[in-house]
Nucleic acid binder design. Structure first.
Lengths: 334, 334
DNA sequence: CTGAAAGCGCTTACAG
DNA sequence: CTGAAAGCGCTTACAG
């Protein structure tokens, strides 16, 4: 059933030219006469020749593939980021391998290996929240360009594109303060990550700016999921005084927070203000629509693809850090 | 900066064994003594050797990659399908290339070429709504296994996994009839596609079953987007008698339909019943929650991956057609 | 287990 | 433009 692969040499013979010439033509070289070009292209069509880019890349030590490692496609934030990366890479005629870590360091390391074994020309990595020492060493030794997205790893000097978490948390906290709140909780996330620390600083800065105290009980860590949000808010409600507003790690967490609050009899936007982070589609569809901070996931994706391409073209260029500014999207939950 | 690649021969020399032995070890062959195995693995670590799966695949005419061609990742239906495919392929230790056609036949053909040039071992294709004669010929001649998902191409005898559109449309139409509606519109989609024809038949069958007439004005084609939904319902409202219910091509279209209806002063679920298709996340988040038909996108993805793997293992096996049954998800819009 | 050779499908480099 | 040779990093097949 499976026929033998038609090779460039077959094409050359069929067209009556040399293999070298055929090779020039498939690579689109201009230094071939139109007449031979047409002849060869005709043979390609007749024989059903398929260019073997893998063999070509291997010989010439090039790559037309890129690895993209994210946490989870089912998370709309990463789905958006994927869209940004994918569309940009398509422009460059690159094709990407997709890997999902589910926030496991072990999986992350496996995926890195897998990508490298497949000879990717570069990697866009959204690191897991707790990248191990071992993986960090591994990443440092990888000999293709890596750009970090969303989460930075301090030990690794790579191009990075992310959001200004400090500004984001400050933005939402200040927004709540202006609405008259003074007991504001900070829900979700893992304190080990740099993103957590930055956000916490932004939150604290805004509180201090308004001469407000941060109650340690009002800072609750949790997994970054809907269920995590429910957990976090349950913990928050166990201590007095109960806050009147919460800023959540992201929209997913905020959705969980609101579910739980509603079950406990709270009316969102009235008894309790809630603000999310990311501005995923569900945020605007929710009833009431969720006030949130837009973190421009798609743009981060396309910027990461841009950085990676530039780095692949010029490994010696200066390291880039692109920090996008978040935007407040006020809706009905505050 | 970029070091020379460490090769298997380097590893063999370093460990003091032959290249053949080293090759056996990286492939996990059991016919090597534990002692040499450990020695070689130690050398691999020390030298930072990365197995070149691409070279290996080329030599042994294997492939560890698969191409997945969908319409658009931003469409939640396809995002779900992607998740299903991705997670299943990860189980098999395959890695996928992602391509998005945006429903363009030309892009679809380009992507097929790109995938083949990258030596994929198989392709999961969600065909565009109007695949040209030329592309069909192309697909027939592809010499790797293809499984079609979501949309079938009658001319192509390939494995297929999809949903029973006839049953789906019948389900929602009957549901509306039971709710007392007798003027039911059918909104969205392109009549050229087989999915359209099947759904239309299901819709018609349900109407006839209840001795109801199908008014040709009540069948309105449109692009499969939110905006398409708005267009379709505007057209629908131009003719008398105005229906009291509509079944929509999918949830995205239904969302547009409801937006437009609301603008025109209709109260959804009261003045006009609306039912969607797919059961994307937004369907349950919408206010009021959308009655829809679950089309099991994620399951379709994982089934497609299963079929492809089996086909790759046995090219001669009998052709499979997996037709999943949809489920009605009654909510508040009907 | 070893060693040497050939080959997967290309590109490179070079003499003509 | 041609032609012959070498090489990318592996696996295969075979004699020992």
């Amino acid at each position: 059933m499976r026929k033998k692969r038609v090779t460039l040499l077959d094409v050359a013979k069929h067209a009556g030219v040399s293999r070298a010439t055929a090779s020039l033509i498939v690579r689109g070289s201009p230094s071939v006469s139109d007449k031979t070009r047409r002849k060869v292209q005709e043979s390609i069509r007749e024989l059903g020749y398929v260019y073997d880019r893998v063999a070509a890349n291997m010989r010439s030590d090039k790559s037309s593939t890129v690895g993209l490692i994210i946490t989870d496609i089912a998370n709309p934030y990463f789905a958006e980021l994927l869209i940004g990366v994918h569309n940009k890479l398509a422009e460059f005629d690159y094709i990407e391998f997709l890997g999902t870590t589910f926030d496991s360091d072990e999986t992350q390391e496996l995926l890195l290996s897998k990508m490298l074994e497949h000879r990717v020309g570069g990697i866009i990595l959204c690191p897991v929240s707790q990248t191990s020492e071992q993986t960090i060493k591994r990443i440092k030794n990888v000999d293709v360009p890596i750009v970090l997205a969303v989460r930075e790893i301090p030990e690794i000097e790579a191009d990075y594109v992310g959001i200004d978490y400090h500004a984001g948390a400050e933005l939402s906290t200040t927004h709540l303060i202006q609405k008259g709140h003074n007991k504001i909780a900070f829900l979700g996330g893992a304190s080990e990550s740099s993103a957590f620390q930055e956000r916490k600083k932004g939150y604290t800065a805004a509180m201090e700016q308004a001469s407000l105290q941060v109650d340690p009980h009002h800072v609750v860590e949790s997994p970054i999921t809907r269920e995590g949000g429910r957990e976090a808010v349950r913990k928050m409600l166990q201590n007095e005084p109960v806050p009147t507003a919460c800023i959540c790690w992201n929209d997913l967490v905020a959705l969980g927070v609101m579910e739980e609050l509603r079950q406990q009899g709270y009316e969102i936007g009235k008894d309790m203000a809630v603000v999310g982070f990311d501005n995923i589609q569900e945020a605007s569809m929710h009833q009431p629509p969720l006030t949130t901070v837009a973190s421009h996931a798609r743009l981060i994706g396309s910027q990461a693809a841009n950085l990676l391409r530039q780095r692949m073209n010029d490994p010696e260029r200066e390291r880039q850090r692109v920090i996008l500014q978040p935007d407040l999207v006020p809706r009905k939950t505050t």
